[in-house]
Design a binder for these strands. Structure first.
Length: 222
DNA sequence: AACCAGGACGTGA
DNA sequence: TCACGTCATGGT
């Protein structure tokens, strides 16, 4: 049974750098697309990009990333990646724009809650408690926002994280979000780049063991 | 054509 | 705490 640091190295060797969180970029023909840049960590540079990550974190809840990207592109094309514009937008309009990401009524309410909260930040980094206080932002969404939008060294735990740890035989412990998060944060350097990459690698690995019949096949090595 | 995808909330044991 | 139903679109 490998240590968590060993697991990080193994997954990095197996999958390579993942370059999360992907951001929208304009290609030569002027249309927006979602881009990864493995090995480069200079983004997010702007408030607009930070907001884009926060919105992506909400829109991707229990939803395929491609469906989320479609919604993000709709908002970007309409020049709505700004908190004051989103706050002023009619809920029905917003719901229509994010329809592809599913749960659009709930997600409209969640985005409204976020952009109403946003101005109170005055440019500072939100606390975890502040994010969790917003309706519809739970542990994983809050930690994704802290780690990827604000570069805070917190571990993001998701469905795939549980799957990979379970498949490794680490499923005996008190098995909840907070415990697994702290276990990872203690085991790894307090470095946001490492935690960004580790979470993305766990996602890449977790996607390979989605189907139960693939577990035995891919995990004899552990 | 069922199943799942980068969850969270409300409710009832 | 924890298990379960609900929310909803789009790809396979």
């Amino acid at each position: 049974m490998p240590s968590i640091r060993d697991l990080f190295e193994e997954l990095l060797a197996k999958h390579g750098q993942q370059g999360w969180w992907p951001l929208l970029e304009q290609n030569s023909s002027g249309s927006w697309e979602c881009c990864y840049h493995p090995g480069e960590y200079q983004y997010p540079d702007t408030e607009e990009q930070k907001l884009e990550i926060c919105l992506g974190a909400i829109l991707t809840q229990n939803t395929n990333w491609q469906n989320t990207v479609k919604a993000l592109i709709n908002l970007k094309q309409a020049d709505l990646m700004k908190p004051e514009k989103l706050a002023a937008l009619a809920p029905a309009e917003l719901a229509q724009l994010i329809k592809s990401s599913g749960y659009f009524n709930q997600k409209t309410r969640k985005i409204k809650g976020l952009v109403q909260f946003w101005p109170s930040l005055q440019g500072r980094i939100p606390s975890r408690a502040e994010l969790l206080n917003i309706w519809g932002i739970g542990p994983e969404t809050a930690d994704s926002i802290l780690l990827y939008a604000f570069k805070m060294p917190v571990m993001v735990i998701d469905k795939y994280t549980f799957r990979v740890f379970e498949a490794m035989g680490l499923g005996e412990l008190p098995y909840n979000y907070e415990h697994l998060r702290k276990t990872c944060e203690i085991a790894l350097p307090e470095n946001y780049r490492v935690l960004q990459e580790f979470h993305a690698l766990l996602d890449a690995e977790g996607k390979m063991i989605t189907l139960p019949d693939k577990i035995q096949k891919n995990y004899s090595e552990y």
